[in-house]
Computed example of a mutant assay.
Amino acid sequence: MHTVWKGAISFGLVHVPVKMHSATEDKDIHFRQLHKECKMPISYEKKCPHCDKAVTSDDIVRGFEYEKDKFVIIKDEELEAIKPESARLIKILDFVDLTDIDPIYFEKPYYLSPDQTGGGAYSLLLEAIKHTGKIGIAKISIRSKSSLAAIRVVDNCLCLETMHFPDEIRAINQVPNLPQATSVNDKELEMAKTLIEQLSEKFDPTKYNDEYRAALSELIEQKIAGESVDIVNAPAAVKTNVIDLMAALKASIEATKPEPPAPKKKRRTKKSEEKIS
């Protein structure tokens, strides 16, 4: 598993040397853009419109546009000079309950593995988090981006989840057309709760898959094999204006009722077999 970051976790005076690995992978199918006429990939070169010539990476510098067409240049050594302590250190600031954090703050998960001789300290932190049921809130810098992070236990591994800072979360009052106050019918509410209960079960991630990606992979395989592909138009979604909310709730509850168990077959006894004979 590729290492994307290397450093240490710090809590109190304890240092835990760790390596960080991405916990997720991109499964999307990516396409190249081709020239329709000759089917060759389209190239995108970096070009300066003022000098009218192509430029290489050595000719490029970072610039921040503080006003229209006005830039301030930021050099690599200037960025290096202001790197925070968290560039090589995951400093745990607090321990909190996971239920205290709204999921909107979470961004991307990473697995943490012990580095070199850090196995003992790693196991200590892992077991301490397990026994207390807490998670650590830390700061970390990855690829020049500073983030909050949550450190928790997944099975027998420390997992770091980068988090947004509070000022990166948009305020709810910016969302258009939200109701000022909610008012619902009590009977409809009870039926909605019943429907939720009937649809509720323990989360099993293996139940869910990306049907579109599977269909796209199959289409690509058929194309590679030179098979003809039948184009089938998907049926249009049925549009219904639900006027009677109660009727819709009743129909939904009926549709999601668990099927009754099949009746058990009576086992034959010796006496019943004697009677039949």
Rank of each mutant, 00 (worst) to 15 (best):
E85K: 11
K70R: 14
C48R: 01
A87T: 09
K47H: 09
K83A: 15
I92V: 15
P84D: 05
K68M: 09
E77S: 13
P103R: 08
H50M: 07
K91H: 09
R62C: 08
L79G: 04
A87G: 00
V72F: 10
K68A: 12
I90D: 05
A87K: 10
P49Y: 09
V61W: 06
G63R: 12
E67G: 11
D97Y: 02
A54Q: 07
V96H: 05
I104D: 05
I73F: 03
R88F: 11
D52K: 15
D76K: 13
K53L: 10
D97H: 14
S57A: 15
I101Y: 02
I82Y: 02
E80H: 01
F95G: 06
D94Q: 10
I90N: 08
E65K: 05
Y105K: 11
D69S: 14
D76S: 13
R62S: 04
D100Y: 05
H50D: 03
I90Y: 03
E80D: 12
K70I: 02
D58H: 12
E80P: 00
V96T: 13
I104K: 12
V96I: 15
F71H: 10
K91V: 00
P103C: 12
H50R: 01
I104L: 15
E67I: 06
I73Y: 05
K70L: 09
I73N: 01
P49W: 01
K53N: 13
A87V: 08
A54P: 14
Y105M: 13
A87F: 07
Y105D: 12
R88A: 03
E77V: 06
L89G: 03
V61G: 06
E80N: 05
E67L: 07
P84M: 11
K75C: 00
T99Y: 12
D76W: 01
E65I: 03
D69V: 07
T56Q: 08
I90M: 11
P49C: 00
E78T: 01
T99L: 10
K47Q: 00
L89H: 08
E78P: 04
I92R: 13
G63P: 04
I90C: 06
D94M: 12
E80R: 08
S57K: 13
L89E: 15
V96Q: 11
E85D: 07
I101C: 06
D52M: 09
D76R: 13
V72E: 00
K53T: 15
D52H: 13
D100N: 06
A54T: 14
K75F: 10
L89C: 14
P84A: 09
I92Q: 09
L93Y: 02
K47I: 05
C51Q: 13
D102G: 07
D59R: 03
K68V: 12
I73G: 08
V72H: 07
D59I: 04
A54L: 11
R88D: 13
D100I: 03
D94I: 05
V96C: 07
D52G: 15
D58T: 15
L89K: 12
V96R: 08
D69Q: 15
H50Q: 10
Y105L: 04
D59V: 10
P103E: 10
